[in-house]
Amino acid sequence: MTRYAMITGASSGLGLALAEALARRGRNLILVARQRDLLESIALELTQRFGVEVLLRACDLGEPLRLSGFLLELEEGDRQIDLLVNCAGIRTYGHFLAQEWGDEQDIIEVNILALTRLCHALGNAMAVQGGGQILNVASLAAFAPGPWMTTYAASKAYVLHFSEGLREELKQTGIKVSVLCPGPVRSPLRRIPRLDNGNRCMSPEEVALYTVRALEKNRALIIPGRRNRWLAASPRWLSRWLARKLAGAINRAYCPR
Rank of each mutant, 00 (worst) to 15 (best):
R49M: 01
R49C: 05
F50C: 03
G51D: 00
V52Q: 10
E53L: 13
E53H: 12
V54W: 02
L55R: 14
L56I: 15
L56F: 13
R57C: 08
A58K: 08
A58G: 11
A58V: 07
C59I: 05
C59S: 08
C59H: 00
D60W: 06
D60R: 04
L61W: 04
E63G: 01
E63D: 14
E63N: 12
P64E: 05
P64R: 05
P64D: 03
R66Q: 14
R66H: 13
L67Y: 06
S68N: 14
S68I: 02
G69M: 06
G69I: 00
G69T: 02
F70N: 00
F70E: 02
F70V: 10
L71V: 03
E73Q: 15
E73M: 11
L74Y: 08
L74M: 14
E75S: 14
E75F: 10
E75Y: 11
E76T: 15
E76Q: 15
G77C: 12
G77M: 11
G77D: 14
G77I: 13
D78Y: 12
R79E: 15
Q80D: 09
D82E: 13
D82V: 11
L83I: 06
L83Y: 07
L84H: 08
V85G: 04
V85R: 03
V85T: 02
V85D: 05
N86Q: 05
N86H: 04
A88I: 00
A88K: 03
I90F: 04
R91A: 10
R91C: 10
R91D: 10
Y93A: 10
G94M: 09
H95N: 15
H95Y: 15
F96N: 04
L97H: 13
L97F: 14
L97K: 00
A98Y: 10
A98M: 12
Q99W: 02
E100V: 10
W101D: 15
W101H: 13
D103L: 13
D103F: 00
Q105C: 01
Q105R: 14
D106C: 04
I107W: 11
I107Q: 15
I108Y: 09
I108E: 02
I108K: 04
E109W: 02
V110P: 07
V110N: 05
V110D: 04
N111I: 03
I112L: 11
I112S: 07
A114D: 01
L115G: 07
T116A: 11
T116S: 12
R117K: 12
R117A: 05
R117V: 07
L118V: 05
L118H: 02
C119W: 03
C119N: 09
H120F: 15
A121N: 09
L122F: 09
L122G: 06
N124G: 14
N124K: 15
N124S: 14
N124Q: 15
M126Y: 02
M126D: 08
A127C: 11
A127K: 12
G130V: 08
G131Y: 07
G131Q: 03
G131R: 04
G132D: 10
G132L: 01
Q133Y: 06
I134K: 00
I134W: 01
I134H: 04
L135T: 04
L135S: 02
L135A: 02
N136Y: 00
N136A: 00
V137K: 08
A138C: 01
L140G: 06
A141T: 10
A142P: 06
F143A: 00
F143C: 04
A144Y: 11
